[in-house]
């Protein structure tokens, strides 16, 4: 019975981490789907969101709900701002330039945060305490909230993409940018909207991350972002259900690796998965095959 409860609590941990990965992976996947850019700065937007929530609660003593809304708003604004300032001027530039710009923005945010907030890790009191006892194990409220919130966010995103006019525009632009423009879809608006939605999800992800690990540091976003990217590739980049699936898979994988006592190798294992996926099935689990035109 003991190993069963251990397995159960590890699965809950994995799902909790996985739902954060899934939310972040969605942002990667949407942006990649629409302008074929690997947005390295996405992970650092999470970091900014986490710092916003952190300072709102500790320095300004705002109500947690207000802080959460503030964190999401700041992340959204930052995402759109970065897109306007750094990516829009390069829309017709080679992909390599765009990628280097994204890396530059990512490092700018990281090092800027280090200057502003200091390099040390800032800890705070956990936002959510307590849990439910289920037999011999306890499931924390934080885990329950994380999983529920991310499932709601993903459902809302699916509805947005499938049912609304803007969602239709997003799908059209990602399918064929030129043709979409000819049909009267505003590229700038659609791309900005995609960045806004992706960054808002990153903002939600940052708050959920704070629920799980109540601390913020300037480099927290880079590894989280990279792993979320792995999740997006695993699920099939550009595919929304794929990103969710990949996120949960990576979260569970990490929990398993930690459970067998190899937690130092966690990062290595995640990247090994990435390499295997890219070699065996580069389109990911749910990705579509893209044939390249000459």
């Amino acid at each position: 019975m003991d190993w069963l409860s251990l397995a159960f609590s590890q699965i809950v941990n994995g799902l909790q981490a996985g739902s954060v990965y899934a939310l972040v992976a969605l942002g990667y996947s949407m942006v990649y789907g629409i302008i074929l850019l690997l947005n390295f700065a996405h992970g650092d937007i999470i970091m900014v969101g986490a710092y916003t929530a952190f300072y709102a609660m500790t320095a300004f003593h705002l109500h947690p709900v207000v802080s959460v809304v503030l964190a999401v708003l700041v992340s959204t604004a930052l995402g759109v701002f970065v897109e306007k300032v750094a990516y829009t001027p390069l829309r017709s530039a080679p992909r390599l330039s765009l990628l280097i710009t994204a890396i530059g923005i990512s490092f700018l945010l990281e090092n800027g945060a280090q200057l502003l907030f200091g390099a040390d890790t800032k800890s705070m009191d956990p936002m959510v305490r307590g849990g439910i006892r289920l037999g011999t194990t306890t499931v924390s409220f934080a885990a329950i909230i994380t999983i529920i919130v991310s499932v709601i966010a993903m459902a809302a995103l699916s509805l947005l993409v499938r049912r609304t006019k803007l969602g239709k525009a997003m799908r059209a632009v990602s399918e064929d940018m030129g043709a979409a423009q000819l049909m009267g879809i505003s590229l700038n608006k659609t791309i900005s909207f995609t960045f806004a939605v992706g960054s808002a999800l990153a903002g939600i992800g940052s708050v959920l991350y704070l629920c799980a690990y109540p601390q913020a540091s300037p480099t927290m976003g880079s590894m989280l972002g990279l792993k979320a990217f792995v999740a997006a590739v695993l699920g099939g980049i550009g595919s929304i259900p794929g990103a969710m699936l990949g996120g949960f898979a990576i979260g569970l994988l990490e929990a398993i690796v930690s459970a067998v006592g190899l937690s130092e190798w966690k990062d290595g294992v995640v990247f090994a998965v990435l390499i295997v996926v890219l070699l065996v099935k580069p389109t990911g689990i749910l990705g579509k095959k893209i044939t390249e035109k000459v």
Partner: peptide
């Protein structure tokens, strides 16, 4: 490092 990253972005643009 801030200057490095700014250099990267500005150079690309």
């Amino acid at each position: 490092m801030v200057a490095y990253s700014l250099v990267l972005v500005l150079m690309m643009i």
